[in-house]
């Protein structure tokens, strides 16, 4: 994969996961399904990069992980947004909104 889009992808994945976990603690499977359903198949995201992103965010302290019991009684690793993760989400969200607004401003047909 070329370098530039990868960076963009990484950043995008991070913000998607942070936003997802903002709903509440969930395990990796739930988070990836949630993102997949939310994007409605528009973006084809594999699960592997999402897991990588989860652990990356754990490493940088944006999420914390703990083993818990899943809905069907299995041992699952639950992720939770930390205070720092919440801050990060806020910062990235606004950056994304500004970015999208700028792109839309360009795309808006001249009337």
């Amino acid at each position: 994969m070329p370098r530039e889009p990868m960076d963009l992808m990484q950043g995008t994945l991070d913000v998607l996961i942070l936003r997802t976990l903002a709903w509440g603690p969930m395990h990796g499977y739930a988070a990836t399904r949630w993102i997949r359903e939310r994007t409605g198949g528009t973006i084809d995201i594999e699960d592997a990069p999402l897991y990588k992103a989860l652990h990356r965010l754990e490493h940088s302290g944006c999420v914390s992980a703990e083993w818990g019991i899943s809905e069907n009684n299995r041992r699952a690793r639950y992720y939770k947004l930390t205070a720092r993760g919440r801050q990060q989400l806020k910062a990235e969200e606004s950056a994304w909104r500004r970015y999208a607004a700028a792109v839309f401003a360009v795309l808006e047909p001249v009337s």
Partner: peptide, 22 residues
């Protein structure tokens, strides 16, 4: 749907070791 499991395993293992010691 998952993609490259082995690559992810390697990547996550290395990352988690760093997380753990930090």
């Amino acid at each position: 749907e998952f993609g490259d499991v082995d690559d992810a395993r390697r990547y996550i293992n290395a990352l988690d070791r760093g997380t753990e010691s930090a």
